[in-house]
Design a protein around this nucleic acid. Structure first.
Length: 185
DNA sequence: CCAGGGATCCCCT
DNA sequence: GGGGATCCCTGGC
């Protein structure tokens, strides 16, 4: 299964009050302080896992949270992991609404891919044999929007969330490009 | 369509 | 002992 990353947030390590690494290295956040390109998976609100990738050189904390993705292949498998059944429909609107439920939001995205801390924390996302990895399929983004990060209380105003402009799979009810939603009748 | 609240548990203070 | 980088369902308009 594969999905295109359409929404991420940056967390700036020990300079960022919203980052898990702000208070220094602990057992939980150790991966963030390690070499770049590795999965940092944490458990949140008693229910959900979220996936990050470490981004700075060994010894320096910092990471990127994957908040939403666009399903590309293995959609039935994602649906099963999410406890959903994808209905057959010719209605594009309905189909997109269903696919959004699979991977739009960090907890949903992790669940669709079966990501857990136990299984995936620390794995190398730059190598295909890891089972979970990041790849370039040649897709090129036209425009990226920058906004404040979602769901945090500290440093909430910093513009560190990045989304593909106009992409239908960005998280949140009013996340779509206003121009596009207005074009619907 | 939007706002509000409950679920639920790991980790650090 | 309490907060948290979320999700889902309900109820109101």
């Amino acid at each position: 299964m594969a999905a295109r990353i359409v929404e991420v947030e940056a967390y700036l390590g020990e300079d960022d009050p919203a980052a898990h690494s702000f208070a220094g290295r602990t057992a939980r956040n150790a991966v963030l302080f390690g070499p770049p390109g590795h999965a940092y998976v944490y458990f949140i609100y008693g229910n959900h896992y979220c996936l990050n990738v470490s981004c700075l050189p060994d010894g320096e904390a910092g990471g990127v949270l994957f908040r939403a993705a666009e399903p590309l292949t293995g959609i039935d498998e994602m649906a099963e992991s999410r406890g959903m059944v994808i209905l057959k429909t010719d209605n594009d609107r309905k189909r997109i609404r269903e696919l959004r439920q699979l991977t739009s939001g960090p907890g949903r995205l992790a669940e669709a891919f079966g990501i857990t801390r136990e299984r995936d924390n620390g794995s190398d996302l730059t190598r295909a044999r890891s089972g979970l990895f990041i790849a370039d399929d040649g897709y090129r983004v036209r425009r990226i929007l920058t906004t404040p990060r979602i769901g945090i209380t500290k440093a909430a105003e910093r513009p560190l969330r990045f989304v593909i402009a106009g992409n239908e799979f960005v998280s949140g009810p009013k996340a779509r490009d206003p121009h596009e939603s207005r074009a619907r009748k």
